[in-house]
Write a protein that binds this DNA or RNA. Structure first.
Length: 356
DNA sequence: CGTTTTTGACCGGCGC
DNA sequence: GCGCCGGTCAAAAACG
């Protein structure tokens, strides 16, 4: 009896100290993450200030619509290996987005009312006037407005995933607001808005006609709120043109990262895969940063690091803290994420090295 | 019963 | 001006 009591006490003590360790580890990682994010933002701002022209070049690299001639202006060496269907997809989206933006410039009666309503709700000094509203705002007196010019292009990212589900779970909450049959597809196109209040981000999801197992997802705009770590990692990966490994024809190979990475959706859960084999990106000009690092590949995987999101086995309704804890506690994930962020900073700090 | 999805209507752009 | 098309709205239906 006494023996069992002691055993329980020891177990409790062990669990308590483990909890403490985990807590401090989470705090440490959270701090590191915040520091990195702050550094990334300040570097971006600094870089954009020093070289305004670089913005357009970056947009091109990130697959963002150009202000003019977006579909015809394809810089040398860029996206040459893109699946032609993806290229068409992006181009048409850019065109559509442009026309939709022009549409916003001349609001209909109904839209004008909505706009005025939102204006009045934001007029109390609340600065949540989002990008969408800025685009909708009619330019009355040239550039004297307090807002950026309406020609400011929206970020457009496309992602192609193999999925049987109607949409790919990407860590964000979306509200469906429409579905349409389109002329050139046998499959309907679904329209989603980010469910966060005042967030302007929208996405369109449509199954590929040629290969119905593939889902084309187009994201438009930028989130104006904090994203979950998973969503952030996915958006980050998308910015680097990461792609689904199962895609036979459409592997986007222009990534200049020292590793290749991909998002795939097994069922409804996202899996982020980072492949540090040199073969994966033979054209990379960068040395493999992980070759002598402390990140150890899985046994038998031959320098192949795979991070399967804990969300794979996790209910999305689980509390945010638990979610963050499980993800951040995985050293493989943080290493991979840090590598992506570091790579972004490296590129931002060395504009002349951008391959365009 | 509140939230989310569905779906027909509506709107504006575009080509003819 | 008309019809087609894609994007959005909003009432109704479905869902949990």
């Amino acid at each position: 009896m006494e023996y069992h009591k002691n055993e329980h006490m020891a177990e409790l003590k062990r669990i308590r100290s483990e909890n403490q360790k985990l807590k401090s580890m989470i705090n440490l990682m959270y701090n590191n993450y915040e520091t990195l994010q702050a550094q990334l933002i300040s570097q971006q701002e600094e870089y954009l200030k020093s070289s305004p022209d670089s913005m357009n070049r970056l947009k091109l690299r990130l697959g963002i619509a150009e202000e003019t001639n977006a579909s015809t202006h394809v810089p040398q060496g860029m996206d040459c290996s893109l699946d032609s269907s993806i290229t068409r997809f992006e181009s048409s989206q850019e065109k559509e987005s442009k026309s939709s933006m022009e549409n916003h410039l001349l609001p209909s009666k109904k839209r004008k009312i909505n706009y005025e309503l939102e204006q009045s709700t934001n007029a109390d000094g609340n600065s949540c006037l989002n990008e969408d509203l800025q685009n909708k705002k009619p330019q009355i007196s040239g550039e004297s407005s307090d807002y950026p010019p309406v020609t400011q292009p929206k970020k457009i990212l496309t992602m192609r995933t193999r999925s049987e589900a109607t949409t790919v779970s990407d860590g964000c909450q979306w509200r469906k607001y429409g579905q349409k049959m389109t002329r050139h597809s046998l499959w309907p196109r679904a329209y989603y808005k980010c469910a966060a209040p005042y967030c302007p981000v929208r996405k369109q999801v449509q199954r590929c006609t040629q290969d119905p197992s593939m889902l084309n997802t187009t994201y438009e705009g930028e989130h104006n709120h904090l994203l979950s770590p998973v969503a952030m990692a996915i958006m980050n990966a998308m910015s680097h043109r990461l792609h689904v490994p199962e895609t036979s024809a459409g592997l986007i190979g222009d990534s200049d990262l020292p590793f290749s990475a991909s998002i795939s959706s097994m069922g409804s859960s996202p899996t982020i895969t980072l492949d540090f084999t040199n073969n994966a990106n033979p054209g990379s000009r960068y040395p493999n940063p992980m070759s002598n690092q402390s990140v150890h590949p899985q046994q038998g995987s031959d320098n192949f690091l795979q991070y399967s999101s804990p969300l794979s086995n996790m209910n999305y309704s689980q509390s945010g803290l638990d979610q963050m804890a499980s993800i951040r506690a995985d050293p493989k994930f943080t290493s991979a994420l840090a590598a992506v962020i570091a790579e972004s900073m490296l590129k931002l700090g060395a504009p002349n090295k951008l391959r365009l």
